[in-house]
Write a protein that binds this DNA or RNA. Structure first.
Lengths: 106, 106
DNA sequence: TAAATAGGTTTATTTTATAAACCAATCTAT
DNA sequence: ATAGATTGGTTTATAAAATAAACCTATTTA
């Protein structure tokens, strides 16, 4: 069975689908940030991405549920502390997204 | 007045907003396509982007209303023919989008 | 002349993104 | 001691977007 190079799923398709989880401004910014620092607190991400807490909370949840982030909830002294890390799966997904995106922008 | 390099509107902001009109898979594909061919028919775009007619129709409208595309409706023989061209404004917007996007993916 | 096809548009539905409201705990000033 | 503000978020509501489904008119084919 040789591959069907005309099918929708073929490697030759010009515009490959962009992972909808990553094709979102805030989530992409979060992933980009975590890719560079490899661990960050909720408030830090909030500042860097200039997002609201509510929006960020929702988007972090989605990324965690997708397995792209690992989120740890603890305490610093007496205050809650949410720490985020990108997972290997997240890194892979980000890289694939960027690869696919290149077909669109170059 | 020296520029306030800490303000939200400063040039140093890490993640610049991505034009929501372009940050959409189908619309981005359309723009990308039209950037390379500089004129295309509805059905051609539909095939290349693997989109449905309804979805494409809606997205072309949006791009036209934004002034990113010029859309001409005519007839080929007896059948309707929709032809799309990218505008200079569209080219500029696309370039700006790509520039901003680079902050996220590199 | 009935059914299928071309080339779309319009409308409805489902998802998303985002903001607003809220909450519990803690800190601050009086 | 306690009222009000602040921290660090979550939950809920709203607005906007993407997408598909239904539809339409004309044309072509069987």
């Amino acid at each position: 069975m040789h591959p069907d190079i005309t099918s929708k799923n073929s490697i030759v398709s010009e515009f490959k689908p962009l992972d909808p989880l990553l094709h979102s401004q805030l989530r992409l910014a979060v992933m980009s940030l975590l890719l560079s620092v490899e661990e960050a607190e909720f408030t830090y991400i909030k500042e860097k991405t200039e997002s609201t807490a509510g929006n960020l909370s929702v988007q972090l949840d989605k990324l965690e549920k997708a397995g792209y982030l690992a989120i740890e909830k603890s305490f610093r002294g007496k205050r809650p502390l949410t720490t985020c890390k990108i997972t290997q799966k997240g890194v892979k997904a980000f890289e694939a997204y960027v690869e696919n995106l290149k077909n669109y922008i170059s």
